[in-house]
């Protein structure tokens, strides 16, 4: 059965740590990093590999900081 698996890449300097992407993710992939970027914002980062590449997080990000990848795997 083919299964989509995805991944997100956060532009950590552009992210302002607003956390709006966190509830948008159906798989609870995202959390705020402990580190901060140059402006002192804790930035978003993926915390597990359950991402399906649904793009919700990127679609809701006010700063357009998230790039989403998706690939079909035939497990």
């Amino acid at each position: 059965m083919a299964k989509n698996r995805g991944e997100i890449v956060v532009d950590t300097e552009r992210c302002k740590g607003c956390e709006v992407c966190i509830p948008a993710c159906p798989e609870d992939v995202i959390a705020m990093a402990k580190q901060v970027n140059r402006k002192g914002y804790h930035y978003a980062m993926p915390t597990n590999d359950l991402c399906t590449g649904c793009t919700n997080c990127a679609v809701v990000c006010p700063d357009g900081a998230i790039t989403v990848y998706r690939k079909k795997f035939n497990d």
Partner: peptide, 15 residues
Amino acid sequence: TNPEILQPENVVYKR
């Protein structure tokens, strides 16, 4: 990260 996924052709959303 999984390099197999992180390929330019797999981008489905970007700024």
